[in-house]
Design a protein around this nucleic acid. Sequence first.
DNA 1: GCCACTGTTAGCAT
DNA 2: CATGCTAACAGTGG
Length: 285
Amino acid sequence: MPELPEVETIVRGLRPYLEGAELGIFRLLFPPLLRRVPRAALAAFEGTKVTSLKRRGKMILVECEGGRTLVFHLMMTGQMLIERPEVPADKHVRLIVPLIGRDRELRFRDVRKFGFLCCLGPSGSSPVPELEALGPEALDIDFRSLARLFQGRGGCIKGLLLDQRAIAGLGNIYADEVLFRARIHPLKRAASLGEEELKILWKSIRAILRLAISRKGSSIRDYTDPNGDPGDFQALHKVYGREGGKCPRCKAGIRRIKVSGRSTFYCPHCQKKVRLKKSMQRKFG
DNA sequence: GCCACTGTTAGCAT
DNA sequence: CATGCTAACAGTGG
């Protein structure tokens, strides 16, 4: 479900409720949600106030007094919800954290149970490998660093875009949308991209992610923000989920293939593995 | 009912 | 080391 634009939307939606709020007693309804730290570690957060909310890749960081941080990953179907305590929680709610004096509680809801929570101790003493392994933020990386990423890579470009250790934040939907905008075939070898293609790719990553954030993300299935509101960027998807539909640029039929085990949508006319020179494009394009 | 599919990623095999 | 496939889980739709 949530990629960078959705997680960014969630973090922005949570801030007014969480920042400055005191956390109550954690109700961990599905203990395996908590990874690598003992359940007792949560007690250190109870009675402390949230100082700030941040996003790193697709993870949500809830920083608290005392230098401790809660790290949430929503994986496929995780949701962060703000509800009044009297609203009944359904069976997919895995964690409830009361927000003292605000008549609200934070709920982590996750149908498929892939999501996780772990915590950073005071001054970040306990390392969170999932966090440390992340590459540069997709919206922060400068062009030269991106170009360097592609040097000497054996795999295809989509595989690289999905690799969070290389670049953090893109997932299946936005990788396809970025590649369509950049007119690059998803199976093209990463190392074979020229300087010009890399530049278009870099610009496309920024353009697509920024636009998606402004539309509050894509809601395909379950995704909603903390208030339960969906995003509407899905209406602007040019290729993702549009197999058999027409390319908005050239009217060719959009195709669907598997890349790194993921459904991948692209326009066979606009996105070629081998790029024709401009003069040849006029002839054959 | 059964099978295929789903927005993520860790872990394992190659 | 790098790259590729599968499992972890629950629900939905054909």
